[in-house]
Amino acid sequence: MIQKPFLWAHKDSGVNKLFAILDKIIAGINKNVAVIGMALGIAITAINVSVRYIAGFYPEIGSLTWAEEVARYCFLWSAFFGAAYGFRKGVHISVTMLVEKFPPALAKTCVLLTHILNSIFLGFMFYASLMVCYLNYEIGYMSEALHEVPLWVFLLCLPIAFLGATYRSIEKIYEVSWTDADKVVKNAEEEMIHDSVIKD
Score class of each variant (00 low, 15 high):
residue 83 A to F: 12
residue 83 A to E: 01
residue 83 A to L: 13
residue 84 A to S: 12
residue 86 G to K: 06
residue 86 G to E: 08
residue 87 F to R: 04
residue 88 R to N: 03
residue 88 R to H: 08
residue 88 R to K: 09
residue 88 R to W: 06
residue 89 K to I: 12
residue 89 K to H: 09
residue 89 K to M: 13
residue 90 G to T: 14
residue 90 G to H: 05
residue 90 G to L: 02
residue 90 G to C: 08
residue 91 V to P: 00
residue 92 H to Y: 05
residue 92 H to R: 02
residue 92 H to F: 12
residue 92 H to A: 14
residue 92 H to G: 14
residue 93 I to R: 15
residue 94 S to Q: 04
residue 94 S to T: 12
residue 95 V to W: 05
residue 95 V to Q: 03
residue 95 V to F: 07
residue 95 V to L: 04
residue 96 T to I: 12
residue 97 M to Q: 07
residue 98 L to W: 07
residue 99 V to W: 02
residue 99 V to A: 12
residue 100 E to T: 07
residue 100 E to V: 02
residue 100 E to P: 02
residue 101 K to A: 10
residue 102 F to L: 15
residue 102 F to A: 13
residue 103 P to A: 06
residue 103 P to R: 00
residue 103 P to M: 00
residue 104 P to M: 08
residue 104 P to R: 12
residue 105 A to I: 03
residue 105 A to P: 01
residue 106 L to T: 11
residue 106 L to W: 04
residue 107 A to L: 08
residue 108 K to N: 08
residue 108 K to S: 07
residue 109 T to L: 12
residue 109 T to G: 09
residue 110 C to N: 04
residue 111 V to L: 11
residue 111 V to I: 11
residue 111 V to F: 05
residue 111 V to K: 02
residue 113 L to S: 08
residue 113 L to Y: 04
residue 114 T to A: 07
residue 115 H to Y: 14
residue 115 H to R: 10
residue 116 I to L: 15
residue 117 L to G: 02
residue 120 I to A: 14
residue 120 I to M: 13
residue 121 F to M: 11
residue 121 F to N: 04
residue 123 G to K: 01
residue 124 F to D: 03
residue 124 F to H: 07
residue 125 M to K: 00
residue 125 M to I: 14
residue 125 M to F: 13
residue 125 M to Q: 06
residue 126 F to A: 13
residue 126 F to W: 12
residue 126 F to G: 05
residue 126 F to S: 11
residue 126 F to T: 13
residue 127 Y to K: 00
residue 127 Y to V: 15
residue 127 Y to R: 00
residue 129 S to K: 00
residue 129 S to Y: 10
residue 130 L to G: 14
residue 131 M to Q: 12
residue 132 V to E: 03
residue 132 V to T: 13
residue 133 C to G: 09
residue 133 C to W: 09
residue 133 C to H: 05
residue 134 Y to M: 11
residue 134 Y to N: 06
residue 135 L to H: 14
residue 136 N to K: 05
residue 136 N to H: 12
residue 137 Y to L: 15
residue 137 Y to W: 14
residue 138 E to R: 11
residue 139 I to K: 12
residue 139 I to Q: 09
residue 139 I to R: 11
residue 139 I to L: 13
residue 139 I to D: 06
residue 140 G to L: 08
residue 142 M to I: 05
residue 142 M to V: 08
residue 143 S to G: 13
residue 143 S to R: 04
residue 144 E to P: 15
residue 144 E to H: 10
residue 145 A to Y: 07
residue 145 A to N: 11
residue 145 A to W: 05
residue 146 L to K: 01
residue 147 H to N: 09
residue 147 H to T: 15
residue 147 H to A: 11
residue 147 H to R: 06
residue 147 H to G: 15
residue 148 E to L: 04
residue 148 E to Y: 11
residue 148 E to P: 01
residue 148 E to M: 06
